[in-house]
């Protein structure tokens, strides 16, 4: 199973579009740039939601109102981040597969996603008054910590083996 997956990754990595991006002068900087533009918008949406949840920002808006307004943009941004992320990964898969920060990044990404879908979303769509305030602050803090851990671990790939 794992070896088949690795064969597939290797095949993708040697496919014409990836080779083109890898070998062209601005291919990888371009993919990295798209990755950053996407994360700027996506993490801003997360930040706005968590600030509101913690009760320290955007207090003129309701949580579900904020989510409604930001969701299309956050979704588009996630698409950009994932697409560029896959391209960057396939550019040099061996580098990422051997990287400890990359493993931490993927684990944090998984945790952040599960926490967002399983916990944050319930707080966003639920009854605001029914919960103690400390639980909202805690949820916002965990959410921000997990998402920014994804970012920091990503940045660490360039510096830590």
């Amino acid at each position: 199973m794992v070896s088949q997956l690795l064969t597939l990754v290797q095949w993708c990595s040697n496919s014409a579009p990836i080779v083109f991006i890898r070998d062209s002068k601005y291919g990888m900087p371009g993919a990295q740039s798209v990755h950053l533009v996407g994360l700027t918008v996506f993490l801003a949406a997360i930040l706005v939601l968590d600030l509101r949840l913690a009760g320290i920002g955007m207090m003129d808006w309701s949580l579900d109102g904020l989510e409604r307004q930001l969701k299309p943009w956050a979704t588009g941004a996630v698409a950009l981040v994932l697409l560029s992320g896959v391209l960057i990964f396939l550019g040099t898969p061996s580098k990422y597969l051997a990287s400890n920060p990359f493993r931490i990044k993927m684990a944090a990404l998984g945790l952040a996603t599960v926490f967002h879908v399983g916990v944050v979303r319930r707080f966003v769509t639920g009854q605001p008054a029914a919960r103690p305030r400390w639980s909202e602050i805690a949820v916002a803090a965990v959410s921000l910590t997990l998402w920014f851990l994804v970012g920091w671990a990503g940045r660490a790939i360039a510096f830590v083996p």
């Binding site: 930040l47 920014f148 970012g151």
Partner: peptide, 11 residues
Amino acid sequence: HILALPLSVGM
């Protein structure tokens, strides 16, 4: 510098 982007530019 990079992870302040959501807070600065994103807003």
